[in-house]
Structure formats: C-alpha cells, structure tokens
C-alpha cells in the first residue's frame, strides 16, 4: 500500500494508521470573544472533528475536550479594478474546547511591534526627513531670505 492511498475500512479490521499526515492547521485570533479555554483554528475542509482532536492530542499533546467545526467559503473579491474576480480557498473553521484547567491566551502583537526593527527604521527615517525639512525652511526664512533656494545647498 503506497502512501496517500488508504484501504476501505471494514469492521473488525485493524485500525487504519496515517504515518505521514499532511493536514495543516492555523491557530487564529478568535473572530468573536471566546472563553479562555476555547481556541479557534483554520484547517483544511477535508478534516473531520475526530481528525482535529487526534491531530492536537497526538502531535501537539494538547488535551482536547470538544471540537466543533464548519466549512467557510473563501471570499470572492474583484482584482485589478473589476477586471476579474478571484476566490480565496475554502477552509474549515474549528472551535476547540480544551480540557478543564487548560487555558490559552492569544499573544498580543502590540507589545513586540513597538520594538520591531522595521518600525524602528521607519521611525528613524521619518524623523530624519522631518529634521531636514525644518532646517531647510529655517534657512530660507532666516539668514537666506530673499535668495533663491537653488543658490547653494
């Protein structure tokens, strides 16, 4: 039996095993406010509730109490000023309830975003630009008033 080709399960046969599972899972911020023990996921549409439970318990060792899920249609949106419409992929939205005593807090990006390198660089360059502008205008208004701006730097 090759990979990705599973026999039909007949009652009484040994349990089917998936040796190389290829399902992905995204942990996303809940759309609506949820209790601290409920986590929202995005998974492929082919996954069942049992699959999600087994995936989290066996691979991530997370104690799962209950899983509820539904398929969500990907959004359609116009592209290139209504030239054509593109559709994003469908996915399954899953709400996973963790077992008693386990909670999860979704991380907040604000605490790290203020120190991020990209943001620091952007702030530094904008500050520099602002300083250059003020020094230029000060020069034009003060000691070099009446002289054209191209006269010197």
């Amino acid at each position: 039996m090759s990979t990705r080709w599973y026999p039909v399960y007949q009652k009484g046969n040994p349990q089917l095993r998936v040796f190389l599972p290829n399902y992905w899972m995204k942990l996303v911020k809940p759309d609506d406010k949820q209790p601290p023990d409920v986590v929202q996921f995005q998974v492929p549409t082919g996954m069942s509730n049992h699959d999600i439970k087994n995936y989290l318990e066996k691979i991530y060792k997370v104690p799962v109490a209950e899983v509820r899920s539904a398929i969500v249609a990907g959004k359609c949106r116009p592209w290139r000023k209504n030239a054509y419409i593109i559709k994003e992929d469908d996915f399954r939205r899953a709400y996973v309830k963790l077992q008693r005593g386990t909670t999860f807090q979704f991380p907040d990006i604000d605490e790290v975003d203020s120190q991020s390198e990209a943001k620091r660089k952007l702030e530094a360059s904008s500050e520099e630009a602002a300083q250059n502008t003020t020094s230029f205008t000060n020069k034009q208004d003060g000691e070099r008033s009446g002289i054209p701006s191209w006269f010197s730097i």
Partner: peptide, 22 residues
C-alpha cells in the same frame, strides 16, 4: 512531524502578520 509543525507555525504566523497589517 518536525516539518509539519514548522509549516503550521509559519502558516499561523503569516496569518497573524496579515491580520495585523505587518
């Protein structure tokens, strides 16, 4: 399984950054 977890982590982070316009 190491690769699978890495992929899940990257997909989660991609979504996370996208949601935060970063």
């Amino acid at each position: 399984f190491v690769l699978l977890k890495e992929q899940n982590m990257l997909l989660t982070m991609e979504h996370f950054y996208k949601q935060n316009h970063a």
